[in-house]
Every structure is written in C-alpha cells, then in structure tokens.
C-alpha cells in the first residue's frame, strides 16, 4: 500500500484582512491550515512584514539598528520613504512614541499631523501605533484615525482599558484594529468579543496576544498564539479567527543581548550579527506559531525572515 501523508482536518478558517489602498493594498490571513502546512489546506496569503518607524529620533534603540536609519530617522516622512523606496517595505508601522507622557508628551493634534505627513509621502499601507499608554492612546489614536480617514489603515493597539474610544474611531473612519491583551488567551478572546459586541466587524480585527523576545518569555507568546490558531481552525471558534500581529522589534531591541558590547561579552560574538539574529529568530518563531503580520526594525533581519517565508511557503 502506498504511503499516505496523515492530514489534519480543520473546520475553521482565519479571517482575511485587507488594509491599505489599491494598488498597494495588502492582505493577511485567510488560511484554513496551521502555518505553512499548505498540504493540509489553503494558505492564500504570505505573512507580511511592516517596517517600524517612529515620530521622534530613536534615541533608545541600540546603535546597530539606529545606524541603519542614520540621516532619516529624525524625520518620519523621510524614514517612511526610505523604507518604501529603498528597503521595498510591504507596509510601514508608525509608532507615535513621542506622545507618551514620559517621553515628549506631544498632543494628539501633533500626532495627527505626523500621520497626515507620512500618509501623503507613501503609497504602501500604514499601521498606526500609539505609545502603549492606555489613557493617552485613547485620545492620540482617535485623532490619528480621523487624520487617516480614507486610507484603510490598521490602528492599534486597543486594550481592555481603552478599546471603546479606539474602536468607535475606527468604525467612524473605516480602519482596521489591533486588539492587544497581555499574554492572556482568555482575555484575548474576551477583548475580541467585547469589540465585536460594539458592532465592529470581526473581519476588520487583528489580534495581538503580546510578543516577547527569545529568552524573555517567547515560549509563552508561542503557546498563546498556537492555542489561538488551534481554537480558530480545529474548534472553529469564530471569536479567535482574526489574523495575529507580532510586534517583534520593540521587544527584541531592548534586551541586553542586542546591546552588550563585544568587550563586555566576548563569548557572545559580533554585536551586529547578534542583534539581527535575535530579531530574525524571534520573528521566525512567531511565524511558525501563527503570526500573519510582523512589525520589525532591522533591514537585515527583515531580509532574513523574508527568505525564511519564501522557503517555507
């Protein structure tokens, strides 16, 4: 008897989310099989990587990644253009970090202007991220959603403490939403339910169960993401079917392994390679757990992960 490959039968399907504007709109999700197991089902879209940029100079980034954007990183418009034109980014994630009360505490109006300036300088899809301050994001992301009206952006991150205002703004201006919970799968599900109970279409939702870097809790993120996918596909849990986002860069580029110098840690090898490898490895693990949208920083790490995707698809 010929050998038959054992196959898992899935009942559910990840929702397909399309963001940005034609002709450069990007689709994520849509699969009815676990990541890269295309022999078991249909996987219509490859994972997408968005380059992270910020609305103020990235003084807190390690030199090895900061240097990659020397000359452009003091201006988000130039930074975005560099990612689009030279690095061939599929999408850009603009983090409005300057609005954080502990950073420059810039106003929602300032943030809205930055969003407008960036949007008018690029033609690829934009993800607009707040500073992860629950109260401030509620006002910043509302202003940003309005400024980005008509561009079909992804706005995030809506959390338990601020989702109502952010979701209302996304509804009013037709954007997608990233719903984030902190490594708590039951809360991730609950937040999705609460958001859809506001009348927000689940097909416009992306879930972020919170990322973590290799060596800093990656296995927890991995397990939560994998469980979300299994609920979506095997149990056909409609509340768990939005695509998954992994905000990799911000978690990787703050750990000691990517900044400790070669003289401090001679056994750890080249500092530059170490950082790139750390971001690429973390991102690759997220992909295998089920991430559809990665947010990353180092161009070499992005290039490496693109190669991984190409080989696995």
């Amino acid at each position: 008897m010929a050998y038959a490959v054992p196959k898992e039968a899935y009942n559910g399907k990840v929702l397909n989310v399309k963001f940005g504007k034609a002709p450069n709109a990007v689709s994520i999700g849509g699969e009815n099989a676990m990541p890269f197991l295309s022999f078991e089902g249909e996987i219509p879209n490859k994972p997408v990587i968005a380059f992270e940029i910020q609305d103020m100079p990235p003084d807190d980034w390690p030199d090895t990644v900061k240097n990659q954007f020397a000359g452009v990183s003091s201006d988000p418009v130039k930074w975005a253009q560099r990612c689009q034109n030279e690095l061939k980014a599929q999408a850009i994630a603009l983090r409005l970090i300057s609005t954080h009360p502990d950073r420059e505490n810039r106003s929602p109006q300032d943030a809205a202007k930055t969003v407008k300036d960036v949007l008018s300088a690029i033609n690829i899809p934009l993800i607009i991220l707040g500073s992860n301050n629950v109260e401030k994001d509620a006002s910043v992301l509302v202003a940003a959603a309005e400024a980005a009206g008509g561009y079909n952006c992804i706005i995030g991150k809506a959390q338990e403490g601020n989702y109502k205002t952010i979701v209302a703004a996304a509804l009013a201006h037709n954007h997608k939403i990233i719903a984030m919970s902190e490594l708590d799968i039951n809360l991730a599900k609950q937040l999705n339910i609460l958001i859809t109970q506001m009348g927000f279409n689940k097909e416009n939702l992306i879930t972020d169960p919170m990322c973590s870097a290799l060596g800093y809790g990656l296995e927890y993120t991995y397990s939560v993401m994998e469980r979300i996918r299994l609920a979506a596909l095997l149990q056909n849990d409609a509340t768990m079917q939005p695509p998954i986002a992994g905000d990799v860069g911000m978690y990787v580029w703050k750990i000691k392994e990517v900044s400790a110098s070669e003289s401090e840690a001679p056994l750890w090898g080249s500092l530059e390679e170490r950082g790139i490898a750390w971001e690429a490895l973390t991102a690759a693990a997220m992909l295998i757990a089920g991430t559809n949208l990665l947010i990353m920083r180092h161009p070499k790490a992005v290039e490496t992960v693109q190669k991984v995707i190409k080989e696995l698809v």
């Binding site: 799968i185 039951n186 809360l187 599900k189 609950q190 339910i193 609460l194 109970q197 469980r227 609920a231 149990q235 849990d237 409609a238 509340t239 768990m240």
Partner: peptide, 12 residues
C-alpha cells in the same frame, strides 16, 4: 476543553 474560556463565553 472544546471551547476556550472568556468571560462572555455564554454570549458567543
């Protein structure tokens, strides 16, 4: 274990 728990599980 056939359904993932969330506070609103009865509403889905």
């Amino acid at each position: 274990g056939k359904t993932l728990y969330a506070h609103s599980y009865l509403e889905t």
